[in-house]
Design a protein around this nucleic acid. Sequence first.
DNA 1: ACACGACCCTGTTCGC
DNA 2: TGCGAACAGGGTCGTG
Length: 275
Amino acid sequence: MELPEIETILRTLPLDLTGRPIVRSVVRFSERVCGLSPSTLRRRLLGAAFIGFGRRGKFMLLHLDTHRTLIWHLGMSGRVSVDESLAPVKHLLMAVKLDDGRFVKLYDARRFGRISLAETGELPLHPFFRRMARDYDDPVLTVGVLTRSAQRFRKRSVKEALLDQSFIAGLGNIYASEVLFEARVDPRRSVRALSRQELARVLDCTRTILDGAIARGGTSIRDYVDASGRRGGFQHRLKVYQREGAPCVRCGDNSTVVRIVQNRRSTFFCPRCQK
DNA sequence: ACACGACCCTGTTCGC
DNA sequence: TGCGAACAGGGTCGTG
């Protein structure tokens, strides 16, 4: 799940989850809980009520009226749903039961997700966020900031840098390829060798692509659905991701999309128009 | 401080 | 059809 999918899940949560005390919670894989024990987590949730929901990078923030925040990371395969029942229990990672009987549930087939709880006022200090860059849409994140940040990478490619959450928070493997295609930058180039103008294009395109993906409800390549069970629509707008061998939408029949592997992850790009 | 590899998991698809 | 390999929206840890 990348930032647009998390944002869409937040926007599709029922509005009336707030203000209802938590009467019970379930954690099924204790090794997924970070920084406190599952029993401490469950004890601190008991009696608290959600007051609102937010996001930092790809992390969901579920704010409580106890000045604490429940943090969910969905990993690759996380899914959130709200139901009257705990079932099905397969792949269930965590559930919170409200006093009206509803369960707010986090499913995670691959168990790459993470859970934590923090004092709301101390969220920036939490290990999840301490080294995280600004979010993609934070006005404080300027070309100057990005240019300076790029210099610390000795030999990282721009594609690898875009996946690093200490560079820009929110991009993942799908949108990194899409951003570089839009910015016409070759994903193999060293990030520190990019000109200020090129980094400006990368930043602009990051904002355009992620905003566009949010507007479409995220990307459902495989099985991603939002909190109401609906698929996203941005998969129809992807220009290079998983389009290996297809003609480049800019170059036409003059060039085809290529797939390479960087840091063990697929990258898709057009070698003709991305310089 | 950063580069690099290993590792954490399950499910689906692909090639023989 | 069976079966192993490859791959999948992510991140952390240890080593050098």
